[in-house]
């Protein structure tokens, strides 16, 4: 099995997580020149505060020999059949193994954001919320890069990562994904609506294989033609 010597659950040093104020501004529809000194200082201060609250944790498992059914757009892992849809199934079709992962930064950043919202500090709450999202995305980036750097030594490549709720893969499949993971994976619970708690968590799949490729995400692959998040990149 690939990565056999790696622990299946580990914590990351929050110092390794790389987030910038530009990304937070982007989340508010702004670029650096749009922000005044007050806002820039507030964001920098909030980033430092949130880093103190974050408790990064990553849990994963690796399933070898996945059953990939392009006709029915499904992926079989152990006893579970995932309805991953056209885009995800196609991206993973050359996988020899699949990494199933879920990671979180814990509850505390989310709780701070909620507290700020309750205290009528909507801007501070929004910034905290965006920083929480950036921190957990950065954690997944860190994990993805880590897996990639470990496997490159064995000439194994990694795919893009895919999460329930995106690229046409129904969010309801979250339950199946967690059934493949170890119980109490980083303390993440899945609600009846298939959402993860703590909210600042990300789950998903990464394909591994000698012939797999990681591509830039292409909005053109998505079927939501009129989505306002859609970009024109080819």
């Amino acid at each position: 099995m690939l990565l056999a010597d790696l622990p299946r659950k580990f914590s990351s040093d929050v110092g390794l997580l790389n987030i910038s104020s530009e990304n937070i501004l982007k989340g508010m529809g702004m670029t650096k020149p749009d922000a005044d000194e007050y806002l820039r200082a507030l964001i920098e201060q909030s980033i430092e505060g949130c880093k103190l609250l974050a408790r990064p944790c990553i849990g994963f498992t690796i399933v070898d020999n996945p059953e990939i059914d392009l006709t029915n757009r499904q992926l079989g892992l152990n006893d579970e059949v995932f309805n991953t849809g056209k885009i995800v199934t196609s991206f993973l079709k050359k996988s020899e193994s699949i990494v199933v992962f879920a990671c979180t930064i814990g509850h505390d950043v989310e709780l701070l954001a909620k507290q700020q919202m309750r205290n009528n500090e909507s801007l501070e709450g929004l910034i905290t919320d965006l920083i929480g999202s950036e921190l957990v995305e950065s954690l997944v980036d860190y994990f993805h890069d880590y897996i990639e750097s470990e496997l490159i030594k064995s000439q194994i490549k990694v795919s893009n990562r895919f999460s329930p709720g995106y690229c046409g893969w129904p969010v309801s499949e979250q339950h199946k994904l967690f059934s493949v993971l170890a119980k109490n994976n980083c303390g993440i619970n899945v609600t009846s609506s298939a959402l993860m708690l703590p909210v600042k968590s990300v789950s998903g799949l990464i394909g591994l294989g000698k012939n797999i490729r990681k591509l830039d995400y292409k909005c053109q692959l998505c079927t939501s033609i009129k989505c306002t998040l859609r970009t024109n990149s080819k």
Binding site: M28, G29, M30, D34, A35, L39, N120, E121, S122, L123, L126
Partner: peptide, 11 residues
Amino acid sequence: IFVPQMLISAK
């Protein structure tokens, strides 16, 4: 204006 200014106005 952007989201932050709107939020401050709302406050």
